[in-house]
């Protein structure tokens, strides 16, 4: 674990979040504090509401009640664009890359919000627009170096193997220089080696850039090793919250995973 990484104050607070689809309560009365610079894992059986929770955080879903407080600002709902502007980036469970574009362009889209050149200059691709492209290209190349994907930077992402696509998606999220990074099953479908690589990247991001990370993962080994804190959901309710060790010994969590005799 990192040496001087300090876990700070609460940066994101979810208060009493409820979300329902028709008659199904996907999330009921969920309250979670996310602290600055920590790695928080959200686990739970399938259909527990983990992805829905991420979707609430970055504004894809709007909760029916409850509030989201981010950096001192409370709101009933985020909008995806606002969430992005304020430094929340994410990856998806099913890879959501832009298939027709190259790796480089995919990561460049991550910097959209930081680019300001007007339409006129872009038509000419001169002056401000060109300088901006070069300046952001430098930043993107740093990310490409960090993720060790130099050799595929011009390849259309549709042609890449699954593990690399996941890595590119992480790169695209990192390009926005987020304060909170939401990772939805970053290691799903990977082999052991790819998982190790991805774990290393996640730790490095957290360590080098100080990014707060909220991740959903099913691989318990990974979760227990990486995270500072684990939140357990089951049927839309929070049944556990604590350090990996506390959660491992929580009776309710064990019951949810292993089943219980009625």
């Amino acid at each position: 674990m990192a040496g001087d990484r300090r876990i700070g104050e609460t940066i994101l607070r979810l208060d009493d979040i409820c979300l329902s689809f028709g008659g199904v309560n996907a999330l009921s009365n969920i309250s979670i504090d996310v602290k600055e610079h920590e790695i928080l894992a959200i686990i739970g059986p399938n259909g527990a509401g983990k992805s829905s929770l991420l979707n609430v955080i970055n504004g894809v879903y709007h909760p029916s009640s409850g509030s989201v407080t981010y950096k001192g600002q409370t709101r009933n709902q985020m909008r995806p664009h606002d969430a992005a502007t304020q430094g929340i980036a994410r990856t998806f469970q099913n890879i959501a890359l832009f298939k027709g574009m190259s790796v480089l362009n995919n990561i460049m889209t991550g910097r959209t919000l930081k680019m300001k050149a007007g339409f006129f200059w872009q038509c000419l691709h001169l002056g401000k627009a060109r300088n901006e492209e070069i300046e952001h290209r430098k930043k993107v190349e740093e990310i490409i170096d960090f993720l060790q994907i130099q050799s595929i930077r011009k390849t259309p992402v549709g042609r890449l193997p699954y593990g690399l696509q996941k890595r590119v998606e992480l790169g695209r999220a990192l390009a926005a220089e987020p304060e909170i990074l939401l990772l939805d099953e970053p290691m799903a479908g990977m082999n052991i080696e790819e998982k190790e690589d991805m774990s290393r990247f996640i730790l490095d991001v957290n360590d080098e850039f100080g990014t707060t990370i909220v991740l959903i993962e099913h691989d318990m080994g990974v979760v227990m090793d990486l995270s500072d804190r684990v939140v357990v959901l089951d049927y839309g309710k929070k049944i556990g919250d604590g350090t990996p060790d506390e959660v491992r010994n929580n009776q309710e969590v064990i019951d949810a995973y292993l089943g219980v005799a009625h």
């Binding site: 894809v60 995806p80 502007t85 959501a96 890359l97 889209t109 959209t112």
Partner: peptide, 13 residues
Amino acid sequence: ATRDMDVAAEIIG
């Protein structure tokens, strides 16, 4: 980005 995956595009900003 909008063409290839509109949800992801929106989340990027």
